[in-house]
Amino acid sequence: MSSDTELSFEQAFEELEHIVSQLETGDLSLGESVTLYERGQKLALLCGSLLDNAELRIQQLGEDGTVSTFEPPV
């Protein structure tokens, strides 16, 4: 498996959905459930970060499609 930083949003989200599905079955041991839950938490954070980055990029786009530099208000 590739490292988390190499996962696309779609790959991370798909894995997260699979983990949720596995956890919902209730057929796992406590140890397996905890391990999957931890992995799911990492994937959820990664997905959130990727979405935040995409939102920031969209906000930085100018009307002409070029990326503008963000300058915080003084």
Rank of each mutant, 00 (worst) to 15 (best):
S49E: 13
L50T: 02
L23W: 04
L45M: 10
T66H: 14
Q59K: 14
G48F: 01
E55W: 05
G26D: 07
D52A: 10
L7S: 02
E55Q: 11
E6N: 09
D52Q: 10
E63G: 05
S68L: 15
T35E: 14
G48K: 11
V34Y: 10
D27W: 00
V34S: 12
E38G: 06
E63W: 04
F9Q: 05
E6D: 13
L45P: 01
L36I: 07
Q22N: 04
E15Y: 05
F70W: 10
L51T: 13
L45I: 06
L46M: 04
I58Q: 13
T69N: 06
I19Q: 06
R39K: 15
K42G: 02
V74E: 11
T66G: 04
E24Y: 03
E10H: 00
S21E: 12
L28N: 14
A44S: 12
E17P: 00
E24D: 14
L61V: 02
S49C: 05
N53A: 08
L7R: 07
E55I: 11
F13G: 00
L51E: 13
G40V: 11
Y37W: 12
Q59L: 10
G62V: 00
F9P: 00
D64G: 03
S49Q: 13
Y37Q: 15
S49K: 13
D64A: 04
A54Q: 14
S33W: 00
G40W: 08
E10S: 02
E6C: 02
D27Q: 09
V74G: 06
A54F: 01
M1A: 11
L43V: 01
G62Y: 02
V34L: 15
S29V: 03
E15T: 08
G40I: 09
S49L: 09
V74D: 08
E17K: 15
L61R: 13
G31K: 15
S3L: 13
T25M: 08
Q60A: 11
Q60K: 08
L30F: 13
R39P: 04
E24L: 11
A54R: 14
E24K: 14
E55N: 09
L51D: 08
M1Y: 15
L43E: 03
H18A: 12
E6F: 13
G62D: 03
T25A: 06
E38N: 15
C47P: 05
P73H: 06
V67Y: 07
N53P: 00
A12S: 06
P72L: 12
F70H: 11
Q22E: 15
V20G: 00
E14I: 03
E32L: 03
E55C: 05
G26T: 09
G65N: 05
E6P: 00
V34W: 08
E15C: 01
K42R: 15
E10K: 07
Q60F: 01
Q22V: 02
M1E: 11
G31Y: 12
A12I: 02
I58E: 14
E15L: 10
S21R: 08
V20K: 14
S3W: 14
F70C: 02
